[in-house]
Design a protein around this nucleic acid. Structure first.
Lengths: 157, 157
DNA sequence: AGGTAAAAAAGAATATTATTCCCTAAATCC
DNA sequence: GGATTTAGGGAATAATATTCTTTTTTACCT
């Protein structure tokens, strides 16, 4: 999937795209000082190789009635089937992230819902998944930063 | 900032944009059965009102040498200056998220680095921030789902 | 080194899209 | 119910995406 090597120009392009996913190809070309056709080919290869996974529109979740964010740790019974639990958790639309973590067999999930009542309903649904033993939620009061942008250094090739 | 009311059409547009932030305005217009100019006006207003916060290009962090994700809980001294700690944490490029959480005065931060050695270096830097008492990191072994997409129901207006 | 092959970039031409403007229709407000 | 505001449609224009061809660069191999 990733046979090509990433060079300085790729990193520059990726930084620009991470800053603003809606930037035009022509604009990238101007910024990096290359022809639009050349940049298009780069972006295309980055997409095909899986370096670029996609583009997301970031919405204001508070304004859309999802003002409550919580991180819930979910302990599951040890043994087989652990992956299946993760899949089931990922199916919930209010579950934004599902991470299987080291330590005691458990998942860390990020949940985004309307209010505490909705959180309670979601936790109840978690409980119906067979191997789930117990859950432990941490409510977010303020989010200072939330991003997926990875600044990529590209000074030296 | 948010005076206009969101209707069914807005929600449809937001769902399409969340699925693929790179989709063209013309394509959205075709999907929702409206003129491109009308859709453009909607998207423009959604952007101006802050409902649409921006667009991000999602990159493959593993392929770019940031294969290690960790959630670190950071306890800080109670009292003033707590917000400043959050700001300082947010300045680190390897810190993707900073959440101030309920319970014992603490932050939950999501960190994305190359390896455990880099994580150690980052934790050491956290320690240099004055009010930081101690940190507790949870290493992510597998990420099943990671998204910011909020599916918005739009059946009834 | 030299010469060949492969890859990348430039440039031009075309298709598609973004964007503006104006007009019409619809909703809203006294 | 009429005036005013707001949203949608349609056409025209500007900008962009995309393709194709040519040129240049890079890499490779003996």
């Amino acid at each position: 999937m990733n046979i090509r090597k990433i060079d300085k120009l790729d990193l520059e392009i990726l930084n620009i795209l991470q800053e603003d996913g809606k930037v035009s190809n022509a604009e990238i070309a101007r910024k990096v000082g290359k022809a639009p056709s050349a940049v298009l080919e780069r972006v295309r290869k980055l997409k095909k190789s899986g370096i670029i996974k996609g583009y997301e529109c970031i919405v204001n979740h508070k304004a859309l009635g999802r003002g409550l964010t919580a991180f819930t740790s979910i302990r599951v019974e040890e043994g087989v089937g652990a992956t299946e639990v993760g899949q089931k958790l990922a199916e919930f639309p209010e579950v934004l992230e599902v991470h299987y973590t080291a330590g005691r067999d458990s998942y860390l999930v990020k949940v985004r819902v309307e209010d505490t009542e909705a959180l309670q309903a979601t936790l109840a649904k978690f409980g119906t998944i067979g191997p789930v033993r117990d859950t432990n939620s941490t409510i977010v009061l303020t989010t200072v930063k939330e991003s997926r942008v990875i600044p990529l250094p590209h000074e030296k090739d």
